[in-house]
Write a protein that binds this DNA or RNA. Structure first.
Lengths: 196, 196, 196, 196
DNA sequence: AATGAATGAGACTTCATTCAT
DNA sequence: TATGAATGAAGTCTCATTCAT
């Protein structure tokens, strides 16, 4: 029994659905397309996911898991150095932007089925980001390395806006020269949070 | 024959398709839904638009037209005052962000059919924005009110990223408190372009 | 424009569905089968009936209509001669039993989808029969031609049981010798209602 | 190894299938549903029954077995007292009508797969009933307690019709007040067979 | 004997689009 | 121009059944 066979089917479907949806969007990705890409039959697909929307939920949830891990690592350095932690976040965003699928996938989340699981995952993802950034900014204020003329939550909002804009840009461009963007992005973020 | 009757049908369809697609996305908006919203029959729909994608093109082109008008007005002040013109652009972006449909519509453009007309319109829209901003920054450099350490095109890219991020934010929030966002947005843009 | 084309499609579908379902039952009759029998495309089927269950509802409702007409005629003679009216009802039941499709269709109504329209139609059909028979028996009691030791509603129940049993029998036998059954059925019904 | 484990699985499946099919009909009962109700896996299901239709056959055959037992007891008294035996049959029918599952199951047998085993079992069941009743009537004629103006087989047919009608009635009503029905049913049957 | 993952045929339904009126 | 009945390809999902473990 190879590793591929034991439980790998479910993951293969998620992976296939992820890249298909990143390319074509949720609606223009058929379950048949996903099955072909994953090398499974339609029966197997629906054995693991009662509904097409449920694969989307699985994708989002696996994203959440990853986000939580990365954010935990970022938080670990924040109490010492909020500015440094924010730079870690910048690096994380840049990684996402230079991923082959993530920007395309994100750019397609505007058109997604009405489904409680999907809505919940998206909401959680947003909350996670907002919480982390708000926390970092607040710490930065305490450490007197960040602006205090704006509520941490509002600074966080603008950071999110910037990051999402960057993801959208990456989706449009296809592949991104991460090395060119890095210093500019870090600089802009730096300007955004610097004390006035 | 009233204005409504003569050609009004076409516009009604465009308008209906616009708000339907802003809400549900391109694929989840059926032609039947558009027909119902526009108060026309499917026959009439396909009389004006040979395919569903063609309404999308019409929507995008009408957007282009509007963009051109606004941008012409912005340009009119640019030679005197690039900074002021950039603030006009900010105002334009904020207007878009506080529109009922535009943010939703924009957020949904990630999942759109492969269609030459659609691709062309999107490309033109992007070019228009890039050109205007690049031009404004270059003028600002001449007028010594904007940074020269970064190529105008790159500054323009970051402004676009920020604006698109804002639109995405507006789409998520549903309705936006434009008055709260305005000073912050203008300030961030100001920081972005200020001389170093 | 032939008579067949004008509005005939809907009726053709109902008719086709009726005989298919009478033969194979609701679940074993596919919409494709109905379409083929009716000579229409699947698109046309769903143009007229949003759901397979809706054709069933249409069949049942057309049955209701027919029932109402026949019952009206039976009632017309009841005030004069309840016994004669009851014999008309017997004749009606025998007609149904000797129909090519009706017994098969009725025998299949035990396995039918959970659908409000279906449930409503079946309930109404039952109520119609119960009301007519109860009324006839009550009149017969007044006219002193029918038994009074049992409530009209209960006599009606047994008449219904007998009629449904006969329909079931006809369904099993395929085609029924109505002439052999007629006198026996009328006799049994007569015994059932005769004064004690 | 307890009785439950040895062969109990097969009976559990039959029992589960019986009540599922009584409720939903053959086609609307999935093998998965039966497995869940029986507490076995699909593998086990198909280990005992090669096809879904085979469980139905098993149900019908277990019914046949029961019918044979009851009919043997009824026959035991028939040579002495045909009328009394017929009343035993009435009682048997009433028992069936007041069973939780049997009326529903019977009402659903109109829509059943084309399968030789199923057809055979249904045919045998019908023959069993017809034979018993014909025999009882013939004996009753000999004992001069039953009508002779109608062939025993025809009287038997009407008794069957009445009994099946009653079962159908029970299926519609859900649960039956057997005590209210008993005297009426016995009386009607009595009228049906009484000498003229 | 028992399990449950895997299969794929086939069911119902949606929808863009055509065309006769 | 306007209508809406008609079409059929394509999509999602169900389910009986097989088979390796």
């Amino acid at each position: 029994m190879s590793t591929e066979k034991r439980g790998g089917r479910r993951d293969a479907i998620i992976e296939a659905a992820y890249s298909c949806m990143a390319k074509d969007g949720y609606d223009r990705t058929s379950t048949a397309q996903i099955c072909a890409a994953a090398g499974v039959s339609s029966g197997t697909f629906f054995h693991y996911f009662p509904t097409k929307a449920d694969v989307l939920v699985a994708i989002l949830e696996s994203g959440l898991e990853h986000t939580r891990e990365v954010f935990a690592r970022i938080r670990a350095t924040a109490t010492q150095d909020a500015q440094g932690a924010l730079e870690l976040w910048c690096e994380h965003v840049l990684q996402e932007a230079s991923d082959d699928n993530l920007p395309g996938f994100a750019s397609v989340l505007g058109a997604v089925p009405d489904h409680p699981g999907v809505a919940a995952a998206l909401k959680t993802e947003g909350a996670l980001v907002r919480e982390l950034l708000t926390e970092l900014i607040a710490l930065g204020q305490t450490q007197e390395t960040m602006r205090t003329d704006l509520a941490p939550a509002r600074v966080a909002t603008w950071l999110t806006i910037l990051a999402n804009g960057l993801l959208g840009h990456a989706a449009e461009e296809g592949s991104i020269q991460i090395n060119e963007l890095r210093p500019e992005f870090v600089d802009i973020v730096g300007q955004l949070v610097r004390p006035r």
